[in-house]
Simulated assay, not measured.
Amino acid sequence: MKIRVERDVLADAVQWVARSLPNRPSVPILAGMRLEAAGNEVVLSSFDYETSAKVTLPADVSEEGTVLVSGRLLADIARSLPAKPVDMEADSTKMELTCGSARFTLQLLPVAEYPELPTMPEATGTITPDAFAQAVSQVVVAAGRDELLPVFTGVRLEIEGDTLSLLATDRYRMALKELPWRPASGRAEGAALVPARVLAESSKSMTAGESVTLSLSSSDGGDGLIGFAGEGANGVRETTTRLLDGEFPKVRHLMSVQPSVTVRANTSEVVAAVRRVALVAERNTSLRMMIADDHITLEAATGDQAQAVEAVEATVVDETGQGLAMTAAGFNPHYLLDALNALDTPYVNFAFTAPGKPCLLTPLLELDGEASDDYKHVIMLMRLPQ
């Protein structure tokens, strides 16, 4: 193999593929990155039997061939190279990489022992990259991170015609985003539980093109695979991952809140206040929101050592007409900040039902406008001391 490729193009591609390399590979060969040069392009790929990543780059190919090298080492080298074209030449045992006056020699791994990448399933539909990336970012904040409970570390994708829904929960909060997309067939239906980490990385890295293609394997296929394909900054990117096993909890009904009290406020003002007040919040204790007729007051404390109080102007509505049914609510401050930062509107609507019951946050474009129903974020309230 003998190729020349632009330094920035190579570095970007290698970094992206290397993110899918396992930290502790079950077998040493999985630490490798596969390079295949043919025609006028080179394909870089990795696979750990769960997730695959592949990027196709333009290159000047003098000699075609396929090699396998240490992925993380190549990533470190590519990141440090000077801004000059990169020449890569390999024989049967080693690859020599030259960039300007810098030269590296890498031992090759046995490419014949490397597993074949899974085949991308048939395309299920396409979606606008920016809309997809934003939707994923709004939902993954509610996904769990405890690998001992894998079903909560995923995002459930639900396909119903021209609507794509994303749903995640870690049992203490949940987020739902519904957005339009273009199904490959008019009657497209399906559901998949996708690892949140893979979904987040894929959506953020495929925003350079006009669309992202989602490919979901048939439920009858038994392989439980989903793939994403789209344009990256410097080439075409494809990734596949095996779906998570287990039944996702039925939490959609918790999104249907009939509020007794609603609070509307400026999102950025609430975010700034929560950040300041949370500085003194003791670990595993709540940030208290006191609800008054025309404002909310945020309070937190670390025993007798430090206290913080800040008021934020708000529009408070008694939905029952019988006086405020709730005058205080306890939030996990980190969960509250995650939810507020996931909103993409100037204002936020809090819908409260009763003390200890879930609180629903929805985005508002205008303070007196209708709350959006395409994004919903529910937080389980914490018990307040008497």
Rank of each mutant, 00 (worst) to 15 (best):
Ser20Ala: 15
Leu21Asn: 04
Pro22Arg: 08
Asn23Val: 08
Pro25Asn: 08
Met33Phe: 10
Arg34Ala: 03
Leu35Asp: 00
Glu36Ile: 00
Ala37Asp: 02
Asn40Glu: 15
Glu41Asp: 06
Glu41Lys: 09
Leu44Lys: 01
Ser46Glu: 05
Phe47Trp: 14
Asp48Thr: 09
Tyr49Leu: 13
Tyr49Ala: 03
Thr51Asp: 08
Ala53Gln: 04
Ala53Val: 03
Lys54Asp: 06
Pro58Tyr: 04
Asp60Ser: 05
Glu64Gly: 07
Thr66Arg: 15
Thr66His: 07
Val67Gly: 00
Ser70Tyr: 12
Ser70Thr: 09
Ser70Met: 13
Leu73Lys: 13
Leu74Glu: 03
Leu74Lys: 02
Ala75Lys: 03
Ala75Met: 11
Ile77Tyr: 06
Ile77Gln: 03
Ala78Tyr: 07
Leu81Cys: 09
Lys84Glu: 15
Val86Asp: 00
Val86Gly: 00
Met88Gln: 05
Ala90Met: 08
Asp91Asn: 14
Ser92Cys: 07
Thr93Pro: 02
Lys94Ser: 13
Met95His: 04
Met95Arg: 03
Glu96Asp: 11
Glu96Cys: 06
Arg103Asn: 09
Phe104Met: 12
Thr105Tyr: 10
Leu109Pro: 02
Leu109Phe: 13
Val111Leu: 10
Ala112Val: 08
Pro115Gly: 12
Pro115Ser: 10
Glu116Ser: 15
Pro118Tyr: 13
Pro118Asp: 12
Thr119Asp: 08
Met120Ile: 13
Met120Thr: 15
Glu122Met: 07
Gly125Leu: 02
Thr128Ala: 11
Thr128Phe: 02
Pro129Gln: 15
Pro129Glu: 11
Asp130Ile: 12
Asp130Arg: 15
Ala133Pro: 06
Gln134Ser: 13
Val136Thr: 13
Gln138Val: 02
Val140Leu: 00
Val141Phe: 14
Val141His: 11
Ala143Tyr: 15
Gly144Ile: 05
Gly144Cys: 11
Val151Lys: 08
Gly154Ala: 05
